[in-house]
């Protein structure tokens, strides 16, 4: 039996899919997005963060068996079922723990609780192949449009990501592309155009544009790290609408 490295379990998550959901954040990531809003989920090692302002200590990173985790999550089964919700597995990169995720999703499916996987997609296709047996819904990040940006800034392999995205769609999965809109990273017309082309040619039906926010700054402080984006302001509504419009030119995908 595999174990899952759980960072946090957030109940009544309203931003991570339909209905009432519990989002499970798994610890450990293979990308290094400099704007990351969950820095506590990058390393696989357990971490203790001290939030000086709140005088609050939080520990992240607890190994749990899929069965124990499923039992915890199923406490809310009534809420999921009544609302058409379920469990969202996020991170970190949850697909790095695909075996545990597979087992977890199987246990949840047995109780009619569906799972959404929130992934950046930079893992071997074989991992998706396994998980596809029990999970049909994916939030798939497209963080940049050019291979250079991906490899240099984020540490990811765009070719692999693009190929996984295509294969998931072809396999019949319900895929929503999620585009974090980050000032200075993917807000140029060229990047947006390429992002539009990637999601369009993959055949993704639906995409969400997620505006940058700096809510993660407290976590950087609590980890004793400098946050490069601490003074970056969230984009205006006009900027977002314009970005959505540019992406929209290159794809049939509905963008929100």
């Amino acid at each position: 039996m595999s174990t899952l490295n759980v960072s946090n379990i957030q109940r009544f998550s309203t931003g991570d899919g339909p209905g009432i959901r519990t989002t499970v954040f798994l610890k450990g990531c293979n990308l290094r997005c400099p704007w990351c809003h969950n820095p506590e989920n990058i390393s696989s090692a357990p971490e203790e963060l001290f939030f000086a302002k709140a005088g609050k200590k939080e520990v992240y990173g607890k190994l749990m068996s899929p069965a124990d985790l499923a039992e915890d999550l199923l406490e809310d089964a009534d809420f999921y079922i009544r609302s058409g919700g379920g469990v969202t597995v996020s991170g970190g990169e949850p697909m790095l723990q695909y075996l545990g995720v597979y087992e977890l999703a199987k246990l949840l499916a047995a109780r009619s609780v569906p799972v959404i996987i929130d992934t950046a997609g930079c893992v071997p296709w074989s991992s998706f192949e396994k998980v596809l047996e029990v999970v049909n819904d994916y939030y798939f990040d497209v963080k940049a449009g050019t291979p250079g940006k991906y490899s240099e800034l984020i540490g990811g392999d765009l070719a692999l990501i693009e190929s996984n995205l295509r294969k998931l769609v072809m396999a019949g999965a319900n895929v929503t592309a999620r585009i974090p809109f980050i000032p200075g990273v993917n807000d140029s017309d060229e990047e947006l155009k390429r992002i539009g082309e990637i999601i369009g040619s993959a055949g993704v039906k639906h995409a969400d544009l997620l505006p940058f926010h700096r809510l993660g700054v407290a976590k950087y402080e609590a980890m004793g790290l400098d946050y490069k984006y601490k003074d970056t302001l969230p984009p205006s509504r006009e900027t977002l609408l314009r970005a959505a419009e540019i992406i929209g030119r290159y794809t049939e995908t509905g963008i929100e």
Partner: peptide
């Protein structure tokens, strides 16, 4: 409550 994000309000600056 922000997509893909978890934080407690009181911890924020």
């Amino acid at each position: 409550r922000v997509s893909g994000f978890s934080a407690l309000y009181v911890t924020l600056s």
